Amino acid sequence: MESSSALALSQLPYYIYPTIPNTNKNYPFWPAGKRRSSQLPTRLHCNKMFVPGFGEASPEAKAAKNLHNFFTYIAVKIVAAQLESYNPEAYEELMEFVGRHPLNDGDKFCATMFRESSRHKNLALRIMEVRSSYCQNDFEWDNLKSLAFKMVTESNTRLMRDYISETSRAETEK
Rank of each mutant, 00 (worst) to 15 (best):
T19G: 02
I20A: 06
I20C: 04
I20E: 09
P21S: 09
P21F: 10
N22Q: 14
T23K: 12
N24P: 05
N24K: 09
N26S: 13
Y27W: 13
P28R: 08
F29Q: 12
F29Y: 11
W30N: 05
G33R: 12
K34P: 00
R36T: 07
S37F: 12
L40R: 14
L40Q: 14
L40I: 09
L40P: 02
T42P: 04
L44N: 15
H45N: 11
K48Q: 08
F50N: 03
F50V: 02
P52W: 02
G53C: 03
G53F: 04
F54A: 02
F54C: 08
G55I: 04
E56P: 01
E56C: 00
P59K: 05
P59Y: 08
E60M: 11
E60H: 07
A61N: 06
A63W: 08
A64P: 01
K65N: 07
N66Y: 09
N66M: 12
L67Q: 06
N69R: 08
F70C: 05
T72D: 03
T72F: 01
Y73Q: 13
A75M: 01
V76G: 01
I78Q: 02
I78S: 02
A81G: 04
S85Q: 07
S85D: 03
P88N: 07
P88K: 10
E89K: 14
A90I: 01
Y91S: 04
Y91E: 04
E92N: 12
E92K: 15
E93G: 11
E93A: 10
E96I: 06
V98T: 14
V98N: 05
G99T: 12
G99F: 08
R100K: 14
H101V: 12
P102R: 15
L103Y: 05
D105H: 13
G106Q: 03
K108L: 13
F109L: 00
A111P: 04
A111K: 15
T112L: 14
E116K: 09
K121R: 10
N122R: 04
L123G: 01
R126Q: 15
R126P: 01
M128K: 12
M128Y: 08
E129A: 15
E129H: 10
E129V: 07
V130Q: 00
V130T: 01
V130A: 01
R131N: 03
R131M: 06
S132E: 11
Y134T: 04
C135I: 03
C135T: 07
Q136M: 10
Q136L: 12
D138N: 15
E140C: 07
E140L: 09
N143P: 00
N143C: 06
S146N: 10
S146T: 14
L147R: 15
L147H: 14
F149R: 05
F149P: 00
T153V: 05
S155M: 14
S155W: 12
N156S: 09
T157K: 11
R158L: 15
D162V: 07
Y163H: 13
T167Y: 07
